[in-house]
């Protein structure tokens, strides 16, 4: 077992892991108890496991712990809470932009990353930014509307 340190949601966290290649997805969910991040495919294809690493949206299933040492992560738990949601989360609630909600983590995190870089995207920008995030329930239209509401609509 070896110790790995990361900054997660502004706090220094340590995980004791046997395998240096354990993907951060499992480190967040199991070692650190942050279960907002979801396993969807483990292949980087669906986006359910998206977190922010040094401000960029990344697929945590594709990042081994050894490559994440000293990185700064934001998970969905660090973005906002039901009582004090982030603007993106508030917009998702307002638009009721979740059905089963399993993909919501990736949708919210990817949208937050987009808006951090591009505060006023147009509809196509939003659709392109979310192009690799899959939703099976068909909530796409609401998700785009929610993001556009934060972006000031256009």
């Amino acid at each position: 077992m070896a110790k790995y340190q990361f900054t997660v949601n502004g706090v220094q966290r340590t995980a004791e892991l046997r395998d240096p290649d354990e993907p951060m997805l499992y480190v967040f969910r199991n070692a650190l108890g942050l279960k907002g991040v979801k396993y969807g495919c483990g292949l980087g294809q669906c986006g359910a496991c998206t977190v922010l690493m040094d401000g960029e949206a990344v697929r945590s299933c594709q990042i081994p712990a050894s490559a994440a040492v000293e990185k700064k992560f934001t998970t969905i738990e660090g973005l906002g809470t039901p009582e004090k949601p982030h603007a993106v989360q508030a917009a998702f609630i307002e638009e009721q932009a979740a059905q089963c909600g399993y993909c919501a983590n990736g949708m919210v995190m990817t949208s937050a990353a987009l808006l951090a870089h591009t505060p006023h995207p147009n509809v196509n920008d939003v659709k392109q930014a979310l192009a690799d995030n899959l939703c099976r329930c068909g909530t796409h239209d609401r998700i785009v509307k929610a993001v556009m509401n934060v972006a000031g609509g256009r």
Binding site: K35, Y39, I76, L79, P82, F92
Partner: peptide, 18 residues
């Protein structure tokens, strides 16, 4: 409004997986 949506979009909803 659906009672589960706030938790679902803030990562606090307890799915079976969680």
């Amino acid at each position: 409004k659906r009672p589960d949506v706030p938790a679902k979009v803030t990562g606090t909803h307890v799915f079976m997986h969680d």
